[in-house]
Amino acid sequence: MKAEIRAGLIAVVLLSQALAAIPNPPKLADNALTDPLARDELEGWVKTVGYVGWNPTPEELLTFAQDWVERLKSWRKAAIAPFQPVLQFTGTGQGWGLFAFPDQRPYRFEIAVLEPTSGWEAIYVDLDPEADYRSELFVNRRVRAIYNPGKAPAPAFQPFTKWLGKQILDEYPDAVAVRFAFRRSEKLVPGEPPPGYDTKLKFIRRYNRGTL
């Protein structure tokens, strides 16, 4: 291939990938002012920008950030539009936000079965050696992506729990129901002992025997 043609093709590829690399930050929700963790982060940034002589209120900074995130998103969308079909078809692109926002209130995944006499009994709890039902399954990266909730479980979480629930009820013939749920940690304070988990369960999926 002629060097000029090859360089031209490489230039097109580099251009498409450079455009795909335009930051694509997640949308900033208004609850950043009310959610304690997000509020902490916001106030941290108010402090940081204060060092360069800009002193906005948290509300002003949030509005400013929301405005810029929206602009960036729309610029990015317009810029990559000509390349989007190829990027989509080949599953390629850029954007490498790896652990950008560590969660100070992580979730813990739990599976429990309902025994008629003894009530709910946990059979799997993350990192609990006493409740390690099929723990080898949950370390698989693709499985973990399904049950790791982030803000909310992925759409595949529902069919995953149905599939697993069916197997669990087969393996526990006395159980009348199976439940998949999460408990959220209290806010972690670096260097301090673990603060414990909420008693309230979140993102519950419960299946009774005969419904699966």
Partner: peptide, 11 residues
């Protein structure tokens, strides 16, 4: 950050 990430039981 790493201390926080290493407290996440899913990770």
């Amino acid at each position: 950050a790493l201390w926080i990430i290493l407290q996440d039981p899913v990770m």
